[in-house]
Design a protein around this nucleic acid. Structure first.
Lengths: 137, 137
DNA sequence: CTCTGTGCAAAGCGTTTGCAAACGA
DNA sequence: TCGTTTGCAAACGCTTTGCACAGAG
């Protein structure tokens, strides 16, 4: 958190507009945000924001590998900043997503499977769906 | 494969129509199909099929836990028959999805993480994205 | 100053809905 | 026969697009 979003954008040949920085800040602060989450949040501090601008920028930042799409069963995708591989705990009740680090074996397992299948691994997404501690009454 | 789809449907209080059986057969044969895959296939043997019927039935069969949605980064979801936990190898080139069984450690890892986080695990989806052996020139 | 990015409104599509007719049990 | 399911066409809502203006570098 508290990354220099402007540098992050420039590194990817994207101009550091207030809209883009606000989008990144929202995602970074929350961890995972949907398009609507982002729009609702950023429009508060920048009322003239257009939803189309959010769409355009998310698409662009995913292409540039600044963001990663996290598709979720039965809901709209969320987006997160690119980061080390990790596990998602996705609450089916409150829809929050929490990250947990891989343990030492996790990587090995997936690499082994990929090698056995002669599969050229590019990206991995481990999603555990369930009820988070907060929602368990 | 070659399951008794009619019984499967009746077990879930769904009438065994030709449309539903054909949808299940397509998914079971291919392993994983998108809505459009299914429509394109079934309409061949049942030309009066409506796309709306496919949508309605997929939604229904997911609710009844006959099918499971597999959301995929940057593409439309695919659907599979419900089955034991497994890993998806998703080819980013040809879009094929292949299943691989969990090895002995996989379950342990996810159960451990869930317990540590007091997370009530309901469902898990492990997706490995990359290039399948066929597409590696 | 130049080229990129934004906002707006319209267009485009995938998905859902309502209803009469057809069908399964 | 009765309740469910289907097909059609319309409605919906999310996403994308084109273009003139604004803004970053």
């Amino acid at each position: 958190m508290m990354i220099d979003y402007a540098s992050l954008l420039k590194k990817s040949d994207l101009k550091a507009t207030f809209q883009r920085i606000s989008i990144l800040k929202d995602i970074d602060t929350k961890g995972h945000s949907s398009i609507d989450d982002i729009y609702d949040e950023v429009v508060k501090v920048y009322p003239s924001l257009s939803l189309a601008t959010v769409y355009k920028n998310i698409i662009l930042m995913v292409e540039k590998s600044v963001l990663v799409e996290v598709p979720i069963v039965g809901k709209k995708s969320k987006y997160e900043l690119i980061k080390d591989d990790h596990i998602h705990l996705i609450c089916t009740q409150c829809e929050e997503v929490e990250d947990r680090p891989y343990n030492r074996n996790t990587d090995t397992i997936f690499n082994t499977i990929s090698q056995e299948q002669n599969f050229q691994l590019e990206k991995q997404q481990i999603n555990l769906y369930g009820i988070c501690s907060v929602c368990q009454v």
